[in-house]
Structures are given as C-alpha cells and as structure tokens.
Design a protein around this nucleic acid. Structure first.
Length: 295
DNA sequence: AAGATGCACAACCGCATTGTG
DNA sequence: ACACAATGCGGTTGTGCATCT
C-alpha cells in the first residue's frame, strides 16, 4: 500500500508545544478522552496533526508519567531488559511504570550505551568486546558475562522454539520464535524472585548521572519500587493493546507450556545464576570505569 | 564577553502493524 | 481476501541550555 501523509500538512504547526497548546490538549482529553487522534486536533481546535498530539500526550502530558531523573534501579532494569529485548523500547517501558519509551530510548542513547562502551561491553550484544572490537579494553565483569549469557540463551531459546514449533504442528509460515519468551520469564514467579534479589541487594542510591546532574548525594532519594506486580496478575494496562502483550505472563507458561520447558530450564538457570549482589557495580561506581580517554 | 562545543530531551519522520468495512 | 485508515514503534533530528575555550 502506498504511503500516506499522517495528516494534511497545510497550516499545521510543528515544533515545540506551547503551554496554551498543552492546556488545550489536556482539557480536551480530560473532558472527552482522546478518541480518534486523527480527529482530535480538529475537535479540540489545535493546529497540530493527530500524531503530534498523541506523541505530546503519551510522552509528556499524561498524568501518570513519572518525571525526573532515572534511579539507579531503573537504569539497571533498563540494561537488563535491553539485554533481553534489544531496542524494543516500548516493551522495556512497559516494565518501568511512569516511564515512556522515548525517555528510555533517550536514556539509552545518551547515557547507558556510552557507559557500556566505556566498560568494553558492546551495547548491541551486551557481550564484552574482543580484542578486535571497538575498544581494546576488554573487561569481563560478572555482569557483562551474564549479559552475554542472557543473549546466548535467548538466541538458543529462539532457535529451539523455532525448531520445536516446526516439529509440532505449525505450518512453516507460522513458525515464529517467541521473542517475548524471556520477558514472560522475567515476569514469571521465577523472575519475581530474581527481581526481589535485585531489590534486596540494591542501595537506594540515585544513579551517577542523576547525581551528577542534580548534585544530590547518594541516599537522598529512596529507591524506586519497580512495580511489576500487576503484570503477573494480568491486570496491567499496557499503552498498546494491539501489539503483542509481552507483559502479560501466560499462566500456562510455568506449568504446562511444553514448548517452553526446555528453554525455561536454561533461562531459570540463568536467572538463578545471576550474581546475587547484582554485580552491575559499574553503575554505582562510574568513576572507576570512566577513566579511558574516550569516556 | 562571545563563540564553540556538548548534552539532554522533545518532537518529527517513515515504516510496520492492526483494525475495519 | 483485499484495500485503506488508524495507530504504534523505533530511528533520527532539532532545539535549548550549560559548559568550555
């Protein structure tokens, strides 16, 4: 199908939103709900395209958005989830209540990616660089090794699922490894235990970035509680109901999912194998790792 | 003081996916 | 089954501010 413009371009405003526009949008949505984004601008009197309105609302104006710097815990979670999910920002964001995919994407591109690079970790694969990699400073902490293990296991799981779905009953066209396998695992009881371990091990320090930008000392802000409870309970409200729902843990997964059993062993092993002290110390101790010139 | 540079983040663009008639 | 509309998503760009030279 051919490409369409998202909206009629004539006379539509672009660029940063002004406070008056924000107010109009908020008032309208509070009153009527957003309904059809495409018709919202006309109905509300805004000279914006619907897409722009949607973006402004979902990334900035929504009342449940948590503003302010990311906590250390959130950053850790983003890194861990990125190791599992890759650049699926929306899926990652669904695990961080109050954070938007855009925000997480920015965090990754401006901070976390660089930090991993500084550590000698490939931000794409989460594997330590080899001698021929972008840096000549391979550093294999338990955390990075574990990230690599996650990735390997994920690939292995995908491959196996693919094979198994072929083996069972699926026609070739429907063979599609479940990319959310690890996310479901993450949200499973096993994952919850894992997260608890993380939670116990954590200190309520803000991230080095946050500290740098706000001059706030460690401990000034208590650690955020990553509430993933509703996910397992099946009562989450993902911002997209149309895409795959990675955060809904399928109850059949832990007990009766044949096709997941083997891979879940591997994954379980990985979850349990994750350093108890949650060795992502590079996040806490950024000075230690920020020494290379390129950092 | 002024220009250069870097950084953070909001916003846009275009493709992908899903819904609907 | 198909075409089209609507929306979601990820990559990229633009802009404003802070810091450096």
């Amino acid at each position: 199908m051919g490409r369409r413009p998202c909206c009629e371009r004539k006379g539509l405003k672009k660029g940063p939103w002004g406070p008056e526009e924000d107010e109009i949008l908020i008032n309208y949505i509070n009153k009527h709900g957003h309904g059809s984004w495409r018709s919202l601008p006309k109905l509300s009197g805004l000279s914006r395209c619907g897409k722009s309105c949607r973006l402004r609302w979902t990334n900035y104006l929504r009342p449940d958005i948590k503003r302010g710097p990311f906590t250390l815990d959130e950053e850790k979670l983003v890194i861990q989830l990125h190791a599992i999910l890759g650049n699926r920002w929306a899926a990652i964001a669904s695990q961080l209540p109050g954070r938007t995919d855009n925000e997480i994407k920015n965090l990754w591109n401006t901070h976390l990616k660089k930090r991993l690079l500084c550590m000698g970790v490939d931000p794409l694969t989460h594997e330590p660089f080899t001698s021929g990699g972008p840096t000549t400073r391979p550093r294999s902490s338990p955390a990075t090794r574990h990230m690599a293990q996650w990735e390997s296991a994920r690939l292995e799981a995908e491959a196996r699922l693919s094979k198994e779905s072929l083996f069972f009953n699926s026609p070739p066209t429907s063979v599609k490894p479940d990319p959310d396998f690890f996310l479901r695992l993450w949200n499973s009881e096993v994952g919850e235990s894992f997260r608890k371990l993380n939670g116990e091990a954590k200190a309520d320090c803000r991230s080095p970035i946050s500290q740098a930008s706000t001059s706030t000392k460690c401990g000034s802000v208590s650690g955020v509680t990553i509430d993933v409870g509703p996910i397992a309970a099946g009562s989450s409200t993902p911002k997209s109901s149309r895409t795959e729902d990675p955060i809904m843990f399928d109850a059949s997964f832990s007990s009766s999912s044949n096709e997941s059993e083997d891979t879940s062993d591997t994954a379980l092993q990985l979850l349990l194998d994750f350093p108890i002290n949650n060795d992502m110390s590079f996040l806490d101790d950024v000075d230690t790792y920020a020494t290379p010139p390129q950092c």
